[in-house]
Write a protein that binds this DNA or RNA. Sequence first.
DNA 1: TTGTATGCGTTATCAT
DNA 2: ATGATAACGCATACAA
Lengths: 334, 334
Amino acid sequence: MKNVTINDVAHEANVSKSTVSHYLNGHFTKMGPETRDRIARAVSKLDYSPNHIAKSLKNKRTMTIGVIVANILHNFSTRVIRSIEDFAHGHGYHVIVCNTDNSSDKEADYIRMLMAKQVDGLVVIPTAKNEALFTELAEKDYPVVFIDRYIEGVPIQSHMLDNRMSVKMAFNHLYEKGHREIGFLTEPVEAIVARQERYDAYLEFCGSYGTHPIPIQVEKEEMVPELEQSAAQGSLPACLIVANDLALFELLKVAKQRDVRIPGELSIISIDDIEFADFFNPGITVIAQPAVEIGTAAVSALFEMMNGRKNATGIERFQPYLIERESVKQYEGQ
Amino acid sequence: MKNVTINDVAHEANVSKSTVSHYLNGHFTKMGPETRDRIARAVSKLDYSPNHIAKSLKNKRTMTIGVIVANILHNFSTRVIRSIEDFAHGHGYHVIVCNTDNSSDKEADYIRMLMAKQVDGLVVIPTAKNEALFTELAEKDYPVVFIDRYIEGVPIQSHMLDNRMSVKMAFNHLYEKGHREIGFLTEPVEAIVARQERYDAYLEFCGSYGTHPIPIQVEKEEMVPELEQSAAQGSLPACLIVANDLALFELLKVAKQRDVRIPGELSIISIDDIEFADFFNPGITVIAQPAVEIGTAAVSALFEMMNGRKNATGIERFQPYLIERESVKQYEGQ
DNA sequence: TTGTATGCGTTATCAT
DNA sequence: ATGATAACGCATACAA
């Protein structure tokens, strides 16, 4: 099944392909009305549709961007991707989605492949270890923006939650409810900035509020056994700030298994809203982050760069907001 | 910043570009070892990387496939996309993700654009209204597979859940627990085959088990008010088969608001597993579907087609499985 | 073993 | 108003 090309159309309409090209690009002033008609007929007769690859080769624009995330299964990533795809589609662009699983090798691989494919820009939730590669991109003025994380020393703009503020709001909410025994549950902080920032903020506020820090930092897989044990020995703090939705899942599993009452025995406030938090029993009080706004702002900035505005390099912070539900106990006597 | 091309490399290495091309494609037998070295040095010195677009134009393969779903935010779609991306990545392919929001216009748009971009294949969860377009694709032997739905009369292979079986399992489970008042909650069936199949199966089993059908078919947005009202007048059935996770969300919201006890007053079994079902209170009994398997089988079939095997056209069914938790009440006296 | 020439399907420059 | 021709960056058939 041979594909019909601009040549076929030209032949069918008895004109040169340059004229057809003009027609296709809307330069109607450059041809007589009857040739225009003839071309129109030829196009629809042959059911011609331009080869975008050839176009891209010539124009050096593929109308495609790449989105690289750790894992599309994460709630935050899904929402971000959706908002990016919406924006891109609104501008005639397509989106290639990639999962790194937090492997920087896979990340580097994807980046190189996407560049080879000449995508017009990249939005990425970066792993921590490709500073050199990213710096190189930035120096080449290749359009890239970060989301959710940034890399120290790499001049690429990032759009992320005000993590410190999110912890501050959580902490403050708990404190106002009379809590003084405030723990913090997180996956290992490692080199993931978002986690680091939240953890640091927690420590900071323990200091400024004068409470004793009770950090629980444990691998996701070991979270359930670890928490089980604490629950069994009754050493769980009276209340917990949970660093993200994945940690929340694990905590809730344990709470159910060990039958710890929320908020009776354990108060919970979690960072990042999750759909079921609303109708869970009890409803989970949450510090939500505006994923759609973040995603949209990021692509939006990317498109500015792709259209030649100079690369911004700062960090754009987005404000979290408290959604109060029922998972935090109010101390009456306080 | 001019991009370095195969010509630059050829020049740098003092060979012709054909030799470089051979080198790049691993045809090392076709050159002397020292020219090979020279080219290697030139490549790394210039930091050359082949332009994939030019390659695609020549080879007529973009190493890219398109995935079209209704909404990436749906749990099922997310999991399917993840499995597809994994498979594709394993074969050196990239994935363009598109959301139709169930609009067939948007769908047609995406399909045309993706074909213009010469993607090598398409996996789609089709809306109901583009029979003509899809039929055309099939006739052109363009590699396409469906997931989750199919279109009557369109010769494109689909990979989907055995919907009838899923309802049968749900119905049977309920019946065995002693239930005789079994309702069915669904979004409007309309032209969505998956919904239709589940609904039809429900009716069928009402017949064969001899129970009175209590279908509740209502738009997602109106589900809450509708259910609220039923709850208020106490006209909710004793037990409900819920057609999918979205409907389950709405139901759970109402249950919480009106304080209807599950499974005390209302037993629930839902089709399609969802993460929180496990640690929800009570745990939601569920008929799960193997999203990853379905996605993987679909891409796998797609790749067969892309590699020239003839288009299969049947419907591939996948078996659901019961995950029993606590949302179904056991009638003792039965 | 290496090079020349041509084509992939466009756009764009420059004639006519 | 229309057409011939040269790129774009690569692969390949054919020569040398």
